[in-house]
Design a protein around this nucleic acid. Structure first.
Lengths: 195, 195
DNA sequence: GAACATACGGAACCGTGTTCCGATTAGCAA
DNA sequence: TTGCTAATCGGAACACGGTTCCGTATGTTC
């Protein structure tokens, strides 16, 4: 579903040159706006900064989720690919799991408002949630299975549940210095250990 | 600050009779609306169901947080009082802590949208967050200190951080059957254990 | 029952997301 | 180069929810 539904991902050569240019500009401007205002950056602001009308945004990215996914796709895919790599390069699957979760947490924590958006009940964001789950849950499942197989962790937690929990723990990560998402996530992973 | 700032808490006899009546009606209607639509229930809806104008709501509860706090005050206070009680009635402080957190999780999970609101970056809700933290953090701190003192848990987590984390884990608790906030919170508490 | 303060209602305003259509322009063929 | 056509654009207009404000209504007091 990822690539078949939304054209924006694959800059098909059938598109007009100005359309491709606008799409590119929008991606850059949106990335900047997300850093500045979070993923809820007003549509009009993004349009204005990109020098286009709001209609142009909606034509390229029908929902906000489409835009967010387009902006962060590279980083999510990098995270997907890091899973097997970490598993191969670490003796302990639990270490690999921890490192991978760290990667994910780093990603979420540095993207202002992303973790919040992932849990927003706004219908616009269900696609976003689905994308993250679709891509990352299988990777997490492999890491979990490896760690459980090695007898390092209990086997009674699902990949979905873990991803969901970690995502939640990243919400508001930069709001108060007394809260450190990384530390709490580490605690959760510690709770998973068997020995 | 809790009682000095917002009249709604103390039904001062200086208020007009119709005002007190409206306030009561609003509390009841709001409670029902929160169950039906979550704490984001449209102001106009609540006003309409209560048979008053929107202005009346804003006069009694200037911010949404005021209304939410008024609706849930009793339950929050019950949670506050449960802390010392549990500590007294359980041999193991860790058990008391676990039970108390369970209470808190139950409260959040059954209040549609409350956990989300607690972390909303909407300025309207910072007061709500502050109220919960003000009331519950000290209780949690006592439980943590007792458990740490008994050597049952590590001492390197603050009450604020734990409350924050638990609150976060309750977000979206009823959204997907694969995610069980209670189970994940239990895992987090397990990660705290020393044994 | 008159005068006053208090409280009420809801119209109006504002900021955002979203839709829609007339104007514009890239791409192409003659 | 010029003219045609379809793809694309821009932004006005609409929808919706929160918030403010003030003329009106009503409880309260004397």
């Amino acid at each position: 579903m990822a690539d078949s539904s939304n054209g924006p991902a694959t800059p098909s050569p059938r598109k007009r040159a100005d359309a491709r240019r606008n799409e590119q500009t929008l991606l850059e401007v949106a990335a900047a706006a997300f850093i500045a205002c979070g993923v809820d950056a007003p549509v009009r602001d993004i349009a204005a900064k990109a020098g286009v009308g709001v209609g142009t945004i909606y034509r390229h990215f029908p929902t906000r989720a489409d835009l967010v996914v387009a902006v962060y796709r590279h980083q999510v895919e990098a995270c997907v690919e890091a899973g097997p790599t970490l598993l191969a390069s670490n003796d302990s699957p639990h270490t690999a799991l921890t490192r991978w979760i760290d990667l994910f947490v780093d990603f979420l924590v540095t993207k202002h408002g992303l973790a919040e958006a992932l849990q927003s009940d706004d219908a616009t964001f269900v696609t976003l949630h689905a994308y993250f789950i679709d891509r990352l849950t299988p990777v997490c499942a492999d890491l979990l299975a490896a760690a459980a197989g090695a007898g390092e962790i209990r086997a009674d937690i699902g990949a979905f549940e873990l991803m969901f929990a970690v995502g939640n723990l990243c919400i508001g990560a930069n709001k108060d210095p007394r809260y450190d998402a990384r530390r709490v996530v580490a605690l959760l992973l510690a709770g998973l250990r068997l020995d």
